[in-house]
Simulated assay, not measured.
Amino acid sequence: MTVNHLMLFLHVCGVTLWVGGMAFAWACLRPAAAGLAPAARLELWRGVLARFFPLVWVSIALIALSGGYRLFEVGFASAPRAWHAMLFTGNLMMAVFLSIWFGPWQRLRAAVDAEDWATAALALGRIRQRVGFNLALGVLTIAVSTLGLGI
Rank of each mutant, 00 (worst) to 15 (best):
T119S: 04
A77L: 14
L29F: 09
W57F: 14
A25V: 13
M22N: 04
R30D: 05
G138L: 04
E115V: 11
W117E: 04
V12G: 01
A37I: 06
A23R: 01
L122W: 04
E43K: 03
A32N: 14
G90I: 10
M94G: 12
I142K: 02
C13V: 15
F102V: 07
G150P: 00
F24V: 05
G138R: 11
W18M: 15
A64G: 02
W117D: 00
L42R: 02
V58L: 15
S145L: 11
S59V: 06
N4L: 08
F76V: 12
L17D: 08
F9V: 10
V144G: 00
F97W: 15
F9E: 05
W57D: 14
A143H: 00
H11L: 06
G21N: 10
A27Y: 14
L108T: 00
R41Y: 01
R51N: 10
S66I: 06
V3S: 06
H11A: 07
G150C: 09
L17V: 13
W83D: 05
Q106R: 14
L137G: 05
G132A: 09
A123T: 06
R128K: 10
R109L: 12
L29K: 03
A61G: 12
A143Y: 06
D116N: 08
L124N: 03
R51H: 04
A25M: 15
G132E: 11
N4R: 15
S99Q: 14
R70M: 11
R81I: 12
F9A: 09
A123N: 02
A123D: 01
G20K: 06
D113W: 09
Y69E: 03
A27R: 05
P38E: 04
V139A: 14
S145D: 01
A120C: 15
L49I: 06
P31F: 07
L62Q: 07
G21P: 00
A40F: 07
A121E: 01
W18N: 03
L147R: 13
G35Y: 10
V96A: 07
G103E: 01
L71P: 02
A27I: 05
G68V: 12
A27Q: 15
G47T: 00
A111E: 06
A40R: 14
C13K: 07
L71F: 12
D116A: 06
V74T: 12
F52R: 08
R128S: 05
G75T: 06
P54T: 00
G138A: 04
V3Q: 12
L44N: 00
L8Q: 11
A118W: 09
H11V: 10
S59A: 14
G35T: 07
C13L: 15
